[in-house]
Each structure stands twice: as structure tokens, then as C-alpha cells.
Design a protein around this nucleic acid. Sequence first.
RNA 1: GUGGGUGUAGCUCAGUUGGCAGAGCAUCAGGUUGUGGCCCUGAGGGUCGUGGGUUCAAGUCCCAUCACUCACCCCA
Length: 423
Amino acid sequence: MTPLQSIKGFKDILPGESELWQSIEEQAKTVFAAFGFREIRLPMLEKTELFARSIGEATDIVEKEMYTFQDRGGDLLTMRPEATAGIVRAYLQHKLYAQEPVHKFFTIGPMFRRERPQKGRYRQFSQINAEIFGVASPYADAQLILVLVHLMNGLGVTDAKPHINSLGCPACRPAFRTALQDFLADAGDQLCSDCLRRRETNPLRVLDCKVPGCKEATQNAPALSDYLCAECRTHFATVRQALDDRGVAYTIDDRLVRGLDYYIRTTFEIQTGALGAQNAIAGGGRYDGLARALGGPDIPATGFAIGLDRLAEIVGSIRRPDLPRPTLYIAALGEDARPMAFQCLSQLNLSGITAEMAYEDKSLKSQMKRANKLGAAHVLIIGEQEMQQGKATLRDMATKEQVTIPTDDLAAHLIERFHNTGG
RNA sequence: GUGGGUGUAGCUCAGUUGGCAGAGCAUCAGGUUGUGGCCCUGAGGGUCGUGGGUUCAAGUCCCAUCACUCACCCCA
């Protein structure tokens, strides 16, 4: 009996909020255009194998969060849990590397993970992704961070600082991992149950644990920065220098560990205190090995993802976009006036002027109230008596001034009037 | 997957030791002939999440269940 509800963790974005999303997306597109990123649009469904191979078999995402099913032909498919894998797949499939050495993409769209929903975390959530392919230079990493900072500033999000780290590379990370595991083996009984598990599966994550006991136990843990190889060290130094030169403020967080297996060297996050437990509104890093791991050539790449739902929540709390207001509301009195009202309305709409009318027979007072509620700048009153004399009344809602205008070429007259006054 | 909180009008929420279902906002209609915002009056709108139980009597107490929500986990 109760009406059907949406799926848990899937939410509707209603008018009023959709305008906010539009304005954020427009702002992002403007920034991307300036920095030379071009849009790529991808399927939301991919073969399961793609995510298993890119994100990592042992990650939570792949192990228990993906929406995976067999289609009617028996293919194992997955609703994308993140965008990077699909972008790399498309990049390799169309051999874009053979056409141009450098590609910069952005994409905006929904991702799917079956987690328990909470503030800032949904089962369908949207991301804004940006990726740079074919550039091994640390300047690509720095540019991505700059794009993020610039976009946040443009949106008025001031409580958002980049945290950066270097995770090392296949040459130096294994040594650190071993050293860390040795250290954690000694600190055994002080760790929480989750960390005891992480110690085996993903020891770097222990450094990121919020449990006070674990923080204490890992206080003197080996630092990743001490284990970086010369190349990684230089790379990270250049990223920092580039940001310093640009005056971009950041925090070095050598415990910033990211969950996806493919990250190497530079990783970063934009963090905020405005979202409860979900403090990251954007995250990213370098993933040079991924193209090769997916069967392509050895192409360096780096990118980020912004949590659009989270960003919209923050931006919405600091400013609301103006809602659309009609330039004109047409009040028609009597059945005879309505055809003329609709005729006029249609011509205004077709010429691009936002206008509304009273479709039903209502009192003038009621129609005026509605015009006021909609925020109409003007009301055209088409009354029975005046109409017979070839006249109508145009009221300016702000000044209350009214003028009589002829009904001959009514729409043309109004179109000219509103186009001249800027609508 | 684990734990806490909350479910009463479209929205935000009151509802006393169990005793007739409420307010504000919103919607609609009026407040002398065809003119908005403020103000005033009125109207509509509820199986009190759902199902059991206790009781003369349950929105209120008990049990179950569902939904939402926050947190853990994980991540954007």
C-alpha cells in the first residue's frame, strides 16, 4: 500500500538542489577547459574483470561492495565503483596513446558501491574525475592539485586543504612494507582488531587508523619518507616545489594512505571538517603501472576524483544558486482571454523568455499571489473588457507601475520589451 | 557486516503519571465589483512506520519487524 520507495542509498536530486549541481558542474567544466581537459563519457557498466584487475582483488571495493551480476548472455558485469578503470580501458581500447603523447580527460557521473549509507556516503554517488595520461613528470601531479584548489576557491569552499604524500614505487615500497610489518609484529597486542587484520592484508592502512591505541602504537613506526628511493624523493620534492612556487598551501601527511592498489608516488586528498566522518571531498594520485597492468603499453598517468555529493553539500551550505524566476506571468480573466494568453505565452517561450501563465480559471487575486510567489518580474493582465477594446495591462511587480498596451502584436511587443531590458 | 539514534499532517516538530490528534510553515478559499508581498479569518490534509501484546482505554508501556539516520569499517 505504501508507495514504492527508492533503493537504500540511492537518492533523488530534486529541483532546487539540481540547480546547485548544475552550477558546480558548470564551474568545473569552465576550469577544465582552461587547463586543457576534455570530456570523456563512458559506460556505467563494465566487465567485472576490469575492476578486479585495476582496483585490486583484495580491496573492500572489489571483495564486497560492487554491484555485480550476470547478464542474460552470461557475461559477468559490474556497475562501475569508480571511474579511473573505465577511462584507462577506453584510452587503451581506442589506442589514444598512438595519436597523441598526452591526454587530459575529465568525466562527471555516477558510481556505485554497496556500502552502508551515512552522511556523505551513498550507494550511488557522483564523481568529477580528471586524469592526465602520458606525463610522468611531477608537474602533472602538481597541476591536478592546482586544479582542485582553484576549483574549490572558485566555489567558495575555503575549509578545504590539500594533504599530500608519496607512497613510493615498486622499487622502494616493498622495503618499507617489510619494515613496517616487522614493527607492527612487535606492537601486536596494542592494535585494534581491524588493524591486526590490516597488518597482514594492507599494513600501510594501520598508519591511517583512527583508534587512539593504534595511533599511539604506531607513533614510532618507520616513516615512508625515509624509505623513498632517489627517483621518488626527487619526484615528490618537485611536486612540493611547484606548489610552493604557485603559493598553494598544503599539508604533508606521511600517513595519507589510499585504498586503491594502483596508486604509486604522489597521492593527495582534499579534506574538510564540514562533513562529519567523511572528511575527504576529493582524492587522487599517480598510477603509472595501471595501463600496463590492463594489457596496454607502459603509460604514466595521474588523476583525481571529487565526491560531487559531498561537494554539493558543502557548497549548498555556503551559498544557494538563484532559482529561475519568470520574466512574465500572464493572468487571464475569463475563458475568452485564455486562448490569447496561451498564444502570447507560447510565443514568449519560443523566443527564449521565461514566462508562465494561469492555466486554470482563478481569481485575479489568486493569480497575482502566484505570480508573486514565482518571483515574476512582470504580470500581464488580460481582462475581458480591455481585451474587447484591444488592450491589456502590464504591471511591473517591483514598482507597481502599470501600463496599457495594445493586444495587436502582443507577443512581439513584449518580446521586444523584455529583450531590450535584458529580460 | 557491526553498533547507537529517530519514525505523529506536504515540511519542521509538540503531545504531561496511558484518557477526544496538535502547532508553525506550506496549500486552497475568503477579508465588498478585476491587483501580489504584511496582517486577519476559515478550509482541506493523519490507518500516530507496520504487525502483535498488556489494559476498561495505547501516539504514550512491552515484543517483533521495516524504514530513515549517524557512527564503525571503507572510501569520494
